[in-house]
Write a protein that binds this DNA or RNA. Structure first.
Lengths: 200, 200
DNA sequence: TCAATAATATACCGATCGGTATATTTTAAA
DNA sequence: TTTAAAATATACCGATCGGTATATTATTGA
């Protein structure tokens, strides 16, 4: 065999990859089984042979979408050692979201959080965990920067992390709904200034 | 008659008021006709006698929800003449969103913008207009504050408006999905500092 | 190469979707 | 009080929803 994955594992992955953009675009309630069969070219029988139900697909898709963003950011973070430069990766990435295919339909965390908060406990929990993960990652970058004497010692890691996430998500939402990047650019410019001001 | 409104007008208003929280909670795609009949105690015939279709209800409900928030903010804005105090109304209101019934299910702009951006052009436009309206209102408060010499003359009204909106929406989303207000509090504390720093 | 088995397709289920034609009831002006 | 019109309820439509039992096909270890 050319791969160690079973046929089912490959089909499962295939379904996730093909339907990921749809869930991110239309949301959980807005995505139908027909959308899944149409996007994959498979039948319901095949989809239900690999997933328990629609929920099961949605949860796997969230992980996939979130992972894509995380990997993309991570690769850029590791391209520099400097803590300030690393923090600047965030505004840089989201400012250019139009150039990043899997961010076109929106931030998976934002989309999922907003739809699922009152309706879908499992998705809600996944979105909440993703946010915690993101916050901790930013906090750790700041702590590392303080330890390396690249960031002011009196910087509050949690505060900066929360501001960074809020600005990105809030501005991203505006960009998506207005169809222009004016506000996103303003917010990311401000965030960059704020980050540069952390320099020791 | 005790009111000048026709029966139909009153029923129409009744339907809007009763279904407003549901649309804000479940979203457009997640709200069914059954939800509407259940919430109102009316039948489909009655609802379709007063509205053209589900879209028509959703659009009217968005206006209603958005108007409620706007009126609430406006009343508090007018309680003070000072520009800084007026700007502080925004973090103060959203920080306490749990105490405000029609904000429990989330900010109607955020909810609508996130769901409708790729799926529902009319709702998307309404959300975009609401954002423009909000931005202009904040800008005008800042310009007024500069004219009254209460705010630094070199303040950029648009920049502050965008930061204010982004921080509120981004932090609000986090509060809704995590179920705690820690992040919202941090973001609103920061926003208050930022606003107080505008003082001339 | 050949079975056993795993994976996928077909055909169907009841429930619910948004929507409507028509009958009944309520409103309100004369 | 009567009556025409407006408002609401009833009963139904076809389409689509998520989901499943079973038949067919493809895979894979022996």
């Amino acid at each position: 065999m050319s791969t160690s994955l079973s046929k089912a594992d490959r089909t499962r992955q295939f379904i996730i990859e093909k339907t990921a953009p749809i869930f991110n675009e239309k949301g959980y309630a807005g995505t139908s089984l027909h959308d899944l069969t149409h996007a994959t070219g498979l039948t319901k029988g095949s989809i239900y042979g690999n997933f328990e139900n629609k929920d099961d697909v949605a949860l796997a898709v969230f992980d996939y979408n979130h992972n894509k963003v995380t990997e993309y950011i991570k690769a850029r973070l590791l391209s520099t050692e400097n803590a300030i430069e690393r923090l600047l990766v965030y505004p840089e990435v989201y400012r250019n979201y139009l150039k990043i295919p899997f961010l076109h339909a929106g931030c998976p965390i934002l989309n999922t959080a907003t739809e699922a908060d009152d309706t879908h406990p499992l998705l809600k929990e996944k979105a909440a965990n993703a946010l915690s993960f993101w916050k901790r990652a930013v906090e750790n970058q700041i702590k590392r920067g303080i330890a390396r004497a690249e960031i002011k010692a009196d910087t509050n890691p949690t505060e900066i992390a929360v501001i960074l996430i809020s600005l990105i998500e809030g501005a991203f939402m505006q960009a998506k709904v207005t169809g222009r990047t004016t506000e996103l650019k303003i917010a990311m410019d401000y965030l960059e200034k704020l980050i540069r001001n952390l320099k020791a």
